[in-house]
Design a protein around this nucleic acid. Structure first.
Lengths: 116, 116
DNA sequence: ATAGTATATTGACAACCATCAATATAGTGG
DNA sequence: CCACTATATTGATGGTTGTCAATATACTAT
């Protein structure tokens, strides 16, 4: 399973107990690894935090390209990965595509790592 | 920065506020991304959970190779990445190398993702 | 010393990823 | 219909990763 076809975060997380509460199955480890892979990139972490920090909780690609310092196609590429992984939503309004945080998605992943 | 030379998890986490509490710096995003990269592999997630599930909280390579279904060098390789990232410790006793969970390391990373 | 065992390291290879330039798509306004 | 703009897709490329076979290292026991 590559980054190109990742299941939404909820798939990785609807099922499982915390990582350190007993041995995880091979299947669940694949699912969680794919979800973490979507997060494990500096550009994508910054995109998430930039969208979250935005007034109104949404940002278009044009808001993100310049401060991130990457080309527009690359930014679109990263946003797509985050949408596919279930961390962002995308809404097209006119020419612009607006991205928002999916409430709870990061929390669900974070809680799988936290034991106490 | 590649997986081969990752700073310990504490470096990524001693500093920062949660990901969605305002824009993260480029530097911090690199650090956190490297830490998450160490986790974002199914074999390594299973290794963590297998060590955690073990009686006495420790396991040697020989305990892990067969149930993981990977070669011994590959298992050693993954364990090294987890040690370098600060998630496991390694103690050599006689012929064997025993690995243990670093208390709190996963929690610190998890809390960076959780907002509520 | 020698043989045996557990683990680590090296080297190689196929698969994957982040990135950009170029192009395509889609929506807006004349 | 025609320019113009914002975003997405395609294609290519250099770098990274996961894996194993082969070998090296380190420790133990005879």
């Amino acid at each position: 399973m590559t980054l190109a076809n990742v299941r939404p975060a909820i798939d990785a997380t609807a099922c499982c107990q915390p990582l350190t509460r007993g041995s995880i199955s091979a299947e669940n480890s694949e699912s969680l690894a794919n979800t973490l892979k979507a997060l494990a990139d500096p550009a994508r972490l910054r995109l998430i935090s930039m969208v979250a920090a935005r007034e109104g909780g949404e940002a278009c690609v044009c808001d993100l390209t310049e401060p991130l310092g990457l080309s527009q196609p690359t930014v679109s590429h990263h946003l797509k990965i985050l949408v596919d992984a279930g961390f962002l939503t995308r809404e097209k309004r006119g020419l612009w595509a607006y991205y928002r945080i999916v409430p709870g998605a990061l929390d669900t992943v974070g809680r799988l790592l936290v034991t106490v």
